[in-house]
Amino acid sequence: MGGVLEGKVAVVTGASRGIGAAIAVRLAAEGAKVVVAARTVEAAQSRLEGTIGDTVARIEAAGGTASAHATDLAREQDRQDLVQAAGQRYGQIDILVNNAAVTYFAPVPDFTDRRYRLMFEVQVTAPFHLSQLVVPGMRARGEGWILNISSIAARHPTFPPGPYAGFGGTVYGMCKAALERFTTGLAAELYADNIAVNALSPNQVVPTPGTLFHRLTTDDAPGNEPPEVMAEAAFALCHRPAAALTGRIAYSQDLLAELRSAAG
């Protein structure tokens, strides 16, 4: 297709729908070869709309290059297989977008151990492990980009607490806060290697199959942020040199406004 990412290989997890799918489509539009990873291969597998095949079809219909890889990010072997398969199909991975999430909402006293462990495995351990797997190749080539998708839920609550304090988002916020601290620490470690590591959150709730299912928003709620805004911000964080843009806990609309202002 041609573009800023021509010749680059990207892996996007959680890309069967929502923000992940939008990011995969955007990176492919700039010429990247994209490996679309998620659990949902067939529509019947999930209550939520969208499959990895659907995302690949969107990319190919627009003239891009992509392949689907069924991946359960909670499984160590699946994570290893994903990186190996991407390398065998397209070559070394230049861009890793950790977007996959498994989310449950329940107050801490009611949270089950299984759900707690699963959320941390997918949202914290998987990005950590996948980063370990791709960093050696990025170091060897002298550049790379790792982007972790976070949330405003990582911020500490205000006191007295607001109306959503009892909604059950504590564990989700813990996962995202851990992911952000991992982001800045890894960015510092890899700064000299010209590998950018950033975290990105939407400024507002994005209407996706997941957020609609959990009733975090509605399709027509005022102030909703389209997935394409996150995708544009993700692209911005996945091609600039680390010296210019790394170690950021960025918010999509704020980042895009900053970059527009800097460009004059």
Rank of each mutant, 00 (worst) to 15 (best):
A57I: 03
E30Q: 14
Q45W: 04
E49I: 05
L96K: 11
M119K: 08
A38E: 01
Q77Y: 13
A74C: 05
I95R: 05
R89W: 04
Y104K: 13
A85V: 07
T51K: 07
R79N: 11
T40P: 07
V108H: 10
S46E: 05
A106R: 15
P109M: 13
A61Y: 02
D54H: 14
V83N: 07
F111E: 07
R58D: 07
I93L: 15
A44P: 00
N99Q: 10
D94I: 07
G87S: 13
P107Y: 03
R79W: 04
R75N: 08
E30F: 15
M119V: 01
G53Q: 09
A62V: 00
I93G: 13
A32E: 01
G53Y: 11
V108S: 10
Q84R: 15
Q77C: 00
R89P: 02
A86F: 11
A37H: 06
G91F: 04
D54L: 12
R89K: 14
Q80W: 12
V83S: 07
A70C: 06
I59T: 02
A57R: 15
G64P: 04
A74E: 00
V34H: 10
V35G: 06
T71P: 08
L82M: 11
A74F: 05
A70G: 02
G31C: 09
E49F: 11
E30I: 13
V36Q: 09
Y116L: 15
A100H: 08
L82N: 01
P107Q: 14
M119L: 11
V36S: 09
D81L: 13
A85M: 06
N98E: 10
D94T: 03
V56N: 07
Q88S: 12
R47F: 04
G63Q: 05
A57E: 08
R79V: 01
V97C: 05
Q88R: 14
F111Q: 08
A86N: 08
A74Q: 01
V108N: 06
A37G: 11
P107F: 08
A85I: 09
F120A: 05
A86K: 07
V97F: 07
R75S: 10
L48P: 01
F120Y: 13
A70P: 00
T71V: 15
F111W: 11
D81H: 14
E30L: 15
A32P: 02
G87F: 12
I52G: 04
L118Y: 04
V36F: 13
G91H: 10
T40D: 06
R39V: 01
I59N: 02
T103E: 13
D94R: 12
D113I: 08
Y104G: 13
F105L: 15
R58N: 06
L82I: 03
Q88D: 11
L96E: 09
V102L: 15
R58P: 00
A32W: 03
G87I: 06
D72S: 08
V97N: 11
G87A: 13
R115V: 08
